[in-house]
Write a protein that binds this DNA or RNA. Structure first.
Length: 906
RNA sequence: GCCGGGAUGGCGGAAUUGGUAGACGCACGGGACUCAAAAUCCCGCGGUGGCAACACCAUGAGGGUUCGAUUCCCUCUCCCGGCACCA
């Protein structure tokens, strides 16, 4: 394989010159970035002679500095952007800042600095970091959601939606985060805790604004099918979140004739098994009954306060209390008691259920506990009627055949539901309908650092929207929150206003909008960030949809669902012509690192940063433990986890960039694992990436020096125009084969094997076998000359492929060496390399020879050999002879896969 | 409980989608260079047996389809992620 005559032997000859070619990434990256900036290389201009490619990464929250997740996210985006530019697309890659939100307020409280200043400082620092990574971002389109130029359009659209009834004000039970003192959306409650604070969420009743996302529930669900470029799991998560179920709405008339209790059921076939009804503690019927029943009132209070949102909720004991009220079964006329039960949710369906203990596990448990009747109305299709009820340990919740439901007996699920729904409809006591789990999006936040909701409350005129000409409602930028509620409510200059209708004294709304509002449409604004007169313009129709969206899986529901809703709402307002904002979605995996800890005396756990820990190896070199560098004593391994402050396993990207440079950081990120998978941090892996770049650099550099001696790259012909020896032809073919594979892989976003392809190409080039004789000065010998010129041609083409292949991933080095070698001024503007058919062509091919499916040898056949010829060669092969003892009749069958293998079955 | 995704050397991960399992890199071992170290370079590296050619075993476990299975089908185990009293 490898010969001892490696090109690196040249080092010794040229030892004196070596120092000058050192890979000085600092000055290279710096200088290249200055050039790109001056040339406005990443500027996107609307034009239509090339197809457009809008590549968008989720914009960051300006928390202070970049973390590894950002670096990974934006590297993926940059690789795709640069690749598509080379493929001939007109690329837009913008960047902005999700700049409103709570951390700025918390920092303000801690440091006494207004959130605006903290945010702007962070933006400035993080922008610098992004630039130092060399991303081809069009910074002229930068936006920040906390700028009035941006958030005024939040307000403007809010008013349009209000006019259309897509925004409404309602008082409702909301999730209250006691730490942040604010309302959370359902999506922001995770396992009963605030998504940011982790505090146990309480229930509170508060007036707030809602966006009617439920009006789009059906379309949001249906349209998922029109998104083949989205990961399946994200679509499944969204579908589950929307939670469509088909069922029947049934009315149970009150005994006194004063109305009816409405319930929703997906099991109308079990209607005759209903033995009671149950309502949620917040149901109006419960309140009505509690008015005259103090014990019930106390129970309702307990339910409302209780650990209602916690994870144990599902396993919590079923509890309830009778209301003393009764309803009438709509078809049988039976008299059923109404209970208040803690397992009925106010937020779903009607907040009331018909309880069928025989066929619903929850109702079953409840009925056992309170000795309520259990009536079986579904028999299993196969077993006897008794089978379904005999054990009395669980409800029989399967679909089956109706019994005890005269006149609807003997029906399977679908006909039973149809028949019963029909009967209900005729009596006007029910109808089929669809129920969604999705609820409207409450956007009011009792916070300062957000978009002011443009509403004015006038004692005479009531709720008055801020007129368009008064927009934006500016958020004062000099306030410092103190932790006790919203500072806007304590700022008269903001609070006090003239009523736009009557001119009298009025009061502004002090709530601000959920920051998910900001991020629901920022991707549109990148197309027209400078438009002062309109939210969107025709440039939006040029750039949208986003061709590739890249971000974390944690936004699979919230942000992506809101953005889809927002797009559809804007479409229906006639502002854009677009059904879906993001055609393709790539959810990048998390960045993981090892967790090391010790139990300290008090029983607490102390975490140590992996940078301060070294491995302990056994005699075979395998890791058996780890110890702290500082004291040499062992630490325990806590496995892998996402980089976090609490586990002290984060690595600061800035340290990585400072030590190895942007190209190494980018290369490692792309090489360590495919983008959708988790990425495990590895110092050794970073070293390896850096080693490769050093090797690539010095290879280019040495070739450059040779070129200088012979008058430059122009003196070297391309391989088609010069005779190659066999090794050179093989090397060239190998390079084009690797390129073929790399092209396939980059097309399916498998960047790790693209990097691997680059490494393979360099390994092929850096093999002294390409020239059979030691390099000598020109003009010594004819054969030598020929070898040398063949090698140079292969080098020239090989490097032109390699540098272009890696340009999207490590753009600084490739840009620099491309020009240094004399290929041209800008590798990033070159066309993407394509394999040459002539290079791939070969006279003879090697085929694998199998006997009974097992590898037994190889045969070399002419490239156009037919089946018979291949089979003849295979039969004659020594290995086949061995397995047949030379008896051809023992061969039962010969399978030939053209160009690949022959399998001889004996 | 329901839904989704996984399981390949010491490690990260490849495998043209049914065709040479372990590419590329990391770690490790041996060697060269060096006064020495670092850096760099060369060789080796799934397991078992064998001096060797080679043989056998091996892609979580078991079975099936096939000339041929990491890939397709069935059963099971474990891991990760999401949802979870949704009527």
């Amino acid at each position: 394989m490898s010969s001892p005559h490696r090109l690196t032997e040249l080092d010794k000859a040229d030892a004196a010159q070596r120092g000058r070619g050192k890979y000085d990434f600092r000055s290279v990256e710096k200088q290249v970035q200055v050039e790109w900036e001056q040339a406005k290389a990443a500027r996107a201009v609307e034009r239509d002679d090339r197809p457009k490619y809008y590549c968008l990464s989720m914009f960051p929250y300006p928390s202070g500095k970049l973390h590894m997740g950002h670096v990974r996210n934006y590297t993926i985006g940059d690789v795709l952007s640069r690749y598509h530019r080379m493929k001939g697309y007109n690329v837009l890659q913008p960047m902005g800042w999700d700049a409103f939100g709570l951390p700025a307020e918390n920092a303000a409280m801690a440091n006494g600095v207004p959130p605006a200043k903290w945010t702007n400082d962070n933006i400035a620092y993080m922008r610098k970091q992004l630039k130092s990574l060399g991303f081809a971002i069009d910074w002229e389109r930068e936006l920040a959601t906390c700028h009035p130029d941006y958030y005024r359009w939040n307000q403007w659209l809010f008013l349009r939606l209000l006019e259309r009834g897509l925004v409404y004000r309602a008082s409702g039970v909301v999730n209250w985060d006691p730490v942040d003192q604010t309302v959370l959306a359902n999506e922001q409650v995770i396992d009963g805790r605030g998504w940011r604070t982790g505090a146990v969420v309480e229930k509170r009743e508060i007036p707030m604004f809602y966006m009617r996302i439920t009006a789009y529930a059906d379309e949001l669900l249906e349209a998922l099918e029109s998104l083949p470029g989205w990961p399946e799991r994200v679509k499944v998560m969204q579908a589950n979140w929307i939670g469509r179920s088909e069922g029947v709405e049934v009315s149970f008339p009150y005994e006194d004739g004063s109305g009816a209790l409405k319930v929703f059921t997906t099991r109308a076939d079990t209607l005759f098994g209903a033995t009671y009804c149950a309502v949620a503690a917040e149901h109006e019927l419960a309140a009505r009954a509690a008015a005259t029943n103090p014990r019930l009132a106390a129970f309702i209070e307990e339910c409302k306060r209780g650990p209602v949102m916690e994870a144990e909720l599902a396993t919590q004991d079923k509890k309830g209390m009778p209301t003393g009220l009764h309803v009438i079964h709509p078809l049988s006329g039976a008299r059923l008691p109404v209970w208040v039960a803690n397992y009925v949710l106010m937020g779903y369906g009607e907040g009331a259920v018909m309880a069928v203990p025989a066929h619903d596990q929850r109702d079953f448990e409840f009925a056992l506990r309170y000795r309520l009747p259990i009536k079986c109305v579904i028999a299993s299709k196969t077993g006897a009627y008794e089978d379904t009820v005999a054990p009395w340990r669980d409800a029989y919740a399967e679909h089956g055949i109706t019994v005890n439901s005269s006149p609807f007996d003997g029906l399977e699920f679908d006909p039973a539901v149809d028949a019963i729904a029909g009967a209900l409809e005729r009596k006007s006591l029910g109808r089929k309908r669809v129920q969604y789990r999705l609820r409207d999006w409450g956007i009011s936040r009792q916070r300062y650092w957000g978009t002011p909701i443009p509403l004015i409350y006038c004692s005479k005129c009531g709720d008055v929207p801020v007129p368009d000409q008064d927009l934006p409602v500016l958020l004062p930028e000099d306030l410092v929150p103190d932790g006790s509620g919203n500072p806007l409510a304590k700022t008269p200059s903001f609070l006090q206003v003239r009523c736009p209708r009557c001119g009298g004294a009025a009061r502004r709304e002090t709530d601000t909008m959920d920051t998910f509002v900001d991020s629901s449409w920022y991707y549109l604004r990148y197309a027209c960030p400078d438009n002062q007169r309109a939210m969107v313009d025709e440039r939006v129709s040029y750039w949208m949809s986003v061709d590739q969206y890249i971000g974390g899986i944690e936004h699979a529901i919230l942000h992506l669902l809101y953005s889809r809703f927002w797009t559809k709402a804007m479409r229906d307002l006639g502002l854009i012509k677009l059904d879906e904002p993001f055609v393709n979605l790539l959810t990048q995996g998390m960045v993981l690192n090892e967790i090391f800890f010790r139990k300290v005396d008090s029983g607490r756990i102390a975490y140590y940063n992996p940078a301060d820990v070294e491995p302990v190896l056994d005699e075979r070199g395998q890791r058996i433990g780890a110890r702290l560098k500082a004291d040499g004593l062992p630490v325990e391994s806590g496995g892998l986890g996402t980089m976090s402050k609490s586990k002290n396993n984060g690595i600061d990207p800035q340290a990585l960039i400072d030590q190895y440079g942007a190209d190494t950081a980018r290369l490692f990120m792309m090489f360590a694992s495919p983008p959708e998978q988790t990425l495990e941090w590895s110092d050794a892996g970073v070293e390896g990436a850096f080693r490769f770049l050093k090797k690539l650099w010095s290879f280019c550099d040495k070739f450059s020096q040779e070129l200088a001696e012979i008058g430059g790259l122009a003196q070297i012909p391309w391989p088609d125009a010069v005779p190659l020896n066999e090794k050179q032809r093989d090397a060239r073919r190998e390079i084009h084969r690797i390129l073929l594979q790399a092209n396939r892989d980059i097309g399916r976003h498998q960047f790790n094997t693209v990097v691997s392809a680059g490494m393979k190409i360099l390994n092929v080039l850096d093999d002294a076998a390409l020239v059979t004789l030691p390099i000598a000065k020109p003009g010594t010998d004819q054969a030598e000359q020929a070898d040398r010129s063949g090698r140079n041609a292969v080098y020239k083409e090989g490097l032109s492929i390699l540098l272009r292949l890696l340009a999207p991933i490590t753009p600084h080095l490739c840009y620099w060496q491309w020009r240094e070698l004399g290929f041209g001024p800008d590798v990033c503007a070159e066309p993407w390399p394509a394999p040459a058919a002539a290079a791939l062509d070969q006279d003879e091919i090697t085929m694998v020879l199998q006997v009974n499916g097992k590898l037994r040898g190889e045969i070399v056949v002419p490239k156009d050999a037919d089946r018979q010829a291949v089979e003849r060669l295979a039969r004659a092969h020594e290995a086949v002879q061995r397995y047949t003892n030379g008896q051809q009749e023992k061969i039962k069958r010969v399978v030939v896969v053209p160009g690949r293998l022959v399998n001889v079955v004996v």
